[in-house]
Structures are given as C-alpha cells and as structure tokens.
Design a protein around this nucleic acid. Structure first.
Lengths: 347, 347
DNA sequence: CTTGGCACTCGATAGGGGCGAGTGCTAAAA
DNA sequence: TTTTAGCACTCGCCCCTATCGAGTGCCAAG
C-alpha cells in the first residue's frame, strides 16, 4: 500500500488535495494547491502530478473541467501512509473530561453521554454500542413476582448493565420462593460470564434430573428462560444525528434518508461495530469498505472500549467520508480510553 | 367555534379543501372541488364561498393566482366541528394487534414496539412516553453491591418499568447486609407510589432518630439516595423518524433540522406529551398550538395510556399539519387502549 | 523536468418567454 | 338575491439560452 505513492511530492500533493477537500467540500484545483501548501512549483506541475494520482485511482474528476476529489482509495492511502496521528491537545482532553462532570449515575447514562461527547467534538454523529450480555460477567440475578404466573428476571452484569425480561411460568411461584431461587443462583453463578452461566446451567440440570431436588430444578428452569431472551441483545446509543444535516454532501435528501434509515434500523450499524470489537485500537471504514452497501459516502471511525481485560463494546463517529480524520481519530481513541477508565473506576 | 362556519355549504367546501389538501399537499383550486365532492355548483360559486372562508381566516392563498390552503384555524374547525371520527376498521385493528405477536418480554420493548406500530400505520413518526416513576407504584427495590463503597439500586414499578442508579456510600456495606435492607424496605414500601414512598421515608427517618435502629436507618438512607435520582426521569421512544422525510413540506432542510433537533433534544416533546397526560382521550395540537415555537407546520395527535386506574404515560403521532387526521385520530385512540390493555394483562 | 500560455470544457447562474392553473370581477341568467 | 358563464389578469413554474469562470490538457519553450 505504501508503495503506491512513490515520490515525496506526490504524497504532498495527495495530502494537500485531501486537506483542502476536507476543509471545503468542493473539488480542488491545481492553483489552490500551488498557492497554499508551500509546494514551490507551478500549477502546471501540480496538474501533472494530479493526473498521475488519478491514474493510480487516488483522485478523480467529477467532470472534465472540475478540480479533483479524493477517492476512497485515496483517503485510505492518506490515512495509512501519510497522516501522522497526533495526540489530542491537552485543552481538548480537559474539555472532554469536563463534559462528564455532573456525575453519571447509571452506566446507560454514561454511555449515552459518551455518544453525545463524541458527536459534539466531532461535529458528526457519535455512537456507542452497549456491552453484549453474553460476554460479560454476571453480577447478580433477581426474580420479581409480577402477578399470577408472571415473573420478571433482572440481570446485572459486572459492568453495571441491567437487563430485564418478563415471562410466564406454568404454575405460580410466590415471591418468597423466588427469593430463595435467587439466592441460590447468585451463590452458584457469580462471576461467570453469561455464556459460562448457560453452560453451567445445562450441566446442573443434567445432574438434577437424577436428584429430583425441586428447588434447584425450578431455579434452573427459571434462569434458563431468562437467559434465552437476554443474552444476545445489544443496544446502540446515537448522539448528534442532526450534526449530519450540516454536511453539504447530504443536502440531497436521498442520501440523508439512507443514513437515517440505518440509524433507525440500527442492526446494520451494530453488526459493523461488532466486527471492530475484536480489533485493537482505532478502526476506520471508508465509504463502501463498511459494506453497509448504499452507504457510499459515509465513513466510520471506531474503537473498542473495555473494563479491565474485558472488552465490552465499541464506540465511534459516523460522518461523511470527507471528515476531519486528523482530529476525529485521536478523539475516538481518547474517548474510548477515557470511557474504559471510568467504567473500571466505578464497577 | 362551531358558529364560525354558518352554512352547510361553507362547511362542505372547507371539508373539501382540507381533504384535497391532505391528499395532494398542494393548494387546491375551485375547479377541483366543484368536480369532485358532488357539490352541484359551479367553480365560480365555490370561489365566492372560498373568499368568505378566507375572510374568516380558515383558508389562505399562498399567492394571488394560487388555490387555497387551510390555515391552522381552518384545520381546528374541521377537526372540532366537521370531522366525524370513525372507528378503526376491523382489518386495521386486527393488523395492529398482529404487530405485537412474537411476544414482547419487557415493558420497554412493548413501548418501543408501540412507537413503531404508530409510525408504520400513520406513515409519520410515532412517540411513546414512558411512565414517570414518581407516579407509579413501587413493586420492588433491590440493592446490589458493585465494589467497595459503590452500590446499585434497582427499582421495579408496578407497571414493570425497571430503573437503576449507582451511587457511592461513605462506608462499605456487604451484599448480605444490603439484602437485609432490601427485604426490610420491600415489606415496608410495597404498593405505595414513589411519591408516597418518599414521604414515608422522611417520616420513618424522623422516628428513627429517636430509636437508633441502625439497620433501619441505613436502609432509609440508601433508598433516599436512590430515589433522588430516579423519580423524575421519563423516557421517550420515537419510531419512524424517517417517515417524515417523505413529506414534501419538509423537503426544505431547515424545517427538517428543527424537527430532528427536537427529537434529539426530546425534552420539549416530553413536556408537551406530559401536558396531554392529564387530558382524557385524544388530544390534538395543530402547528403553533403546541407552543413548540419554530414548529409551525407540525401537528401532534396524542392520547394517554393507563393500566387499571393509573394513567401511566402518553403516546402519539407527530407529522405535518397536513396529515390524515381522520385516520390517525382513531389509530392513536385504538393504540392507546390496546397498550393499556396489554399492560394491564401482564402486570 | 518544469513552466507559461492557450484553447477548450462544462457546471453554475441569471434572464427572458411562454404556459397554465387559478383568481376576482362583472354582467347576465335563474 | 343567488348562481353562473365569461374574461382579463396574476404569478409561479419550466424551459431555453447566453454568459461567466474555474479548471483542465496539451504544447512548446525554458
């Protein structure tokens, strides 16, 4: 990939085109580049270089007499080989931390706040994927009697996420009895991940068939039911959708509709974020790379966040391919680390 | 209000203009009305009537040589005095009920699903306001030890809504102890509304000062903390935002941005829905009536929903003032009743 | 290899003309 | 008195054309 752009000058020109394009959003011409960016050559020379870059597929012209616009590949090369990722400035970091003042008293709130921080600092949309229950450690399970034969189960994960499910049971069970099951299960299942819990339950149920211990058996049955529903859910917080409306490339309504549909649908975005959960550090998807087909001009910058060793979820920024990567990449990186730290400190 | 439109014919014409306008979204002319709508008079006559209606402020002309468009007042008169609200068809009702199949296992899910149902049947945005905790009956309170000095409180309301708060306490308390407090409080507080609970706690704390029963005192202190944060929260589920993009009146981006900002902000919409919570039956806010200033061309159709006698929250449809009230009003009405029934049956 | 010059391309913008939907008014008909 | 037909008029919309200018590619000279 790095070999794609040979000369130092080519690289400078590519960078210049991209910077100008990110700033202005319109195709950039040779003159503009020759003037700014201190390349001490004439526009004509720039034009030659640009023609080369176009041949390589890094730039393209919307029409014959227009300036150049970077292609996805061009952006990719820029990000991988040219952009030097800087630290976020002290001032920015301070300001981000300040956004969290006022104390956040629920993980859900913390995550939601994070999506807002991401959006307001990037001027794009911010997203935060909540931990998938199946990978997190169970902290507590609780049964609540609602009405005859209806029981609610509440699961609390190590990270402080609370899930609940309501379901019907064949015969009524009193709250006292439910409490007993709860105590029993809490002793047995604490500090296992939900996937382990599931396995453990199956195991115990087998034994149980032999022992006919009805307390245990009922407890197992209950928790089994509760787990079925809860384990694969994952929520997505989205902040600053409206920021996207300010991007001139989405003035065309059709494009806009696609993105907002994806926001509403969520599942596609969740899938994408899920993928980047296993990667370490910041991940970037430019335009069609995300394979969210029909999302040509949208980029994602994502990073997983964790608590201790346990990777919990992913957060990121969604914006037009033409976004200020040099600022957003460090932003996402820092925010992920900060969130990780906050989760660690609290839970 | 009813007196505003005297003649039977005036009324018919107003109705005709509104129906045509709702259908087409463009100013409607005298010819169109004379042709359809079986008023057996000439366009010229219609024009005279229209001129009268315009003088009354029920219609207006965007410009001299255009047709007429209903004003907010015109819509108001139409809804209050002309529109006969019909029942939703059996087929529609059946289909709505069917949308809820597949079992909904959490109230949150049920409410969210309802916002989707509202949006997909209205082709507009659907909203559902979750019960405000302060008015609902407490079903259960639970404390979970997270780490040294950090405790999570989980509140379950009668209606099956689960809230949680995390807070720091001065000295560490073991899970066993927390359980004890929980049991104690559950006995004491069950079946009071959270407002009553709050009052009760204060009362007990006074006694407590005298008795120096440290179990009770700590329990009270804990729950006090938990309540502070939780009691006034109210969430808003919004479904089908993108439906609004299809309305030609929002082709202009500025208008769109305002609405989506309100969706993001939420608090304004929550306030509005809150207001209509005390009203009985369907409530309609046309354009500026909502006093969500800068929301001129947006209407709300809302209705409270309940479980038993207890009014829990509000749901509704948000769309352009030009929406099909004759369909949406019964839709909102039916959905509110259906949701009420489902909540009642489950919790 | 670089540069200035130059012809050329093509989108964006503005102006002008015609079209047609719809009006208000008037005078005749009911 | 009310309704209707007729008619002149208004004005947004659409299409066409002309103009403008940013930016290009190419060529020949440095």
């Amino acid at each position: 990939m790095k070999g794609l752009v040979r000369g130092e000058r080519s690289r400078r020109v590519l960078e210049a085109v991209i910077l100008e394009y990110i700033k202005g959003g319109v195709p950039v011409g040779s003159r503009a580049i020759a003037k700014r960016h201190g390349l001490r050559v004439s526009p004509a020379t720039i034009r030659n270089v640009m023609a080369d870059l176009e041949e390589l597929g890094l730039l393209y012209q919307p029409h014959t007499s227009a300036g150049r616009v970077p292609t996805e590949l061009g952006l990719r090369v820029y990000i991988d080989a040219i952009l030097k990722i800087q630290q976020l400035s002290i001032a920015d970091r301070e300001q981000i931390r300040r956004s969290y003042r006022g104390g956040v008293s629920r993980v859900e709130g913390l995550l939601q706040e994070t999506s807002k921080v991401l959006s307001s600092f990037s001027k794009q949309a911010g997203v935060v994927l909540t931990p998938r229950l199946s990978h997190t450690v169970l902290k507590r399970i609780e049964f609540v009697w609602l009405r005859t034969s209806m029981v609610m189960t509440i699961l609390v994960s190590q990270a402080g996420i609370v899930h609940n499910t309501v379901f019907e049971i064949k015969e009524d069970i009193s709250q006292e009895e439910l409490d007993k099951y709860g105590r029993y299960l809490n002793d047995m299942l604490q500090d296992l991940t939900l996937n382990e819990v599931k396995a453990r339950l199956l195991e115990e149920m087998k034994k149980e068939k032999v022992l006919f211990d009805s307390l245990l058996s009922k407890a197992l049955e209950l928790s089994q039911k509760a787990l079925q529903e809860n384990i694969e859910n994952s929520e997505l917080y989205i902040g600053g959708r409206t920021n996207l409306l300010d991007n001139p490339e989405f003035a065309d309504v059709e494009q806009m509709r696609r993105i907002f549909n994806a926001f509403e649908e969520k599942s596609k975005i969740i899938d994408l974020l899920d993928k980047s959960m296993s990667a370490r550090g910041v991940n970037i998807f430019i335009g069609s790379e995300s394979e969210l087909l029909d999302m040509e001009s949208v980029s994602f910058v994502t990073s997983p966040y964790a608590s201790g060793d346990e990777v919990l979820g992913t957060l990121g920024v969604i914006g037009p391919t033409r976004m200020d990567y040099s600022r957003i990449i460090p932003l996402v990186d820092y925010t992920a680390k900060l969130l990780s730290k906050m989760l660690e400190d609290t839970f």
